[in-house]
Amino acid sequence: MRILKITGSVLAVLLISLLAFFTYQFWPRTVETLADINAKIPAPTTSTGVRISAFSTGYNESPEAVIYSGGSVFETHKSVYSGFIIEHPKATILLEGGVGENIGAEHAANFNAFERQLFAYTKTQTARERMIGANYDPSKIDRVLLTHLHWDHGAVIPDFDGVPIMTTNAELAFARAEAPTNFSIFEEHLNRKNTNWQPFDLSDVPYGPFKQSFDMFLDGSIVAVPLGGHTNGSIGVFVTTDQGQRYFFIGDASWSLDAVKNANPKIPLVQGLVDHDKAQTELTLALLHEVYKDNPEIQFVPTHDGPIVDLLAQFPKFE
Rank of each mutant, 00 (worst) to 15 (best):
T167E: 08
D142W: 07
P199K: 10
N196T: 10
I185F: 03
D137I: 14
G208F: 03
M131G: 06
A127M: 15
E129C: 09
A173R: 07
D152I: 05
I165C: 08
A127Y: 03
A175L: 05
K193N: 12
R128E: 10
F210Q: 04
L172S: 07
V144W: 01
K193C: 12
T181D: 11
F183H: 15
P199I: 07
I165S: 08
L149F: 03
A134N: 08
K140C: 06
N135S: 13
N182R: 05
A177I: 11
P164F: 05
T195H: 06
I185T: 06
P180M: 01
P206V: 07
V205Q: 11
N169R: 13
H189D: 03
A173S: 11
G162I: 14
W151G: 02
F200V: 13
T147M: 15
W197Q: 04
D161L: 12
V144D: 01
I157H: 00
I132V: 13
H148M: 06
L146M: 07
G133A: 13
R143W: 10
P158Y: 02
I185H: 06
I141G: 08
N135W: 04
F174R: 02
F183W: 10
P209A: 11
P199T: 13
P138V: 09
E188C: 15
S184R: 12
I185G: 04
P164L: 04
P158K: 03
W197T: 06
V144I: 15
F186G: 11
D161T: 08
E129Q: 15
I185R: 00
I185S: 03
A155I: 02
D204T: 15
D161I: 06
R176M: 09
P158G: 02
H153P: 02
P209F: 05
R143M: 09
A177E: 15
E187Y: 03
S184E: 13
L202C: 00
F183Q: 14
A179T: 01
K211N: 13
D161K: 12
P158D: 04
Q198N: 13
R130L: 15
H148C: 05
R143Y: 10
F174Q: 00
D137N: 15
R192W: 01
E188H: 14
K211W: 06
A127R: 05
S139C: 10
T181I: 13
H189Q: 05
W151R: 04
D137H: 09
Y136E: 05
W197E: 07
P180L: 02
K140W: 01
E187D: 10
D204N: 15
D152G: 05
A179W: 02
R130A: 12
P209M: 07
M166Y: 07
V144C: 00
N182K: 02
W197F: 14
N135Y: 01
S203Y: 00
P180K: 01
N196F: 09
F174N: 05
F210W: 08
D159N: 09
Y207Q: 01
A177S: 14
P138Q: 11
Y207T: 01
R192F: 02
A173H: 09
G154N: 00
L190K: 00
R130M: 14
D201N: 15
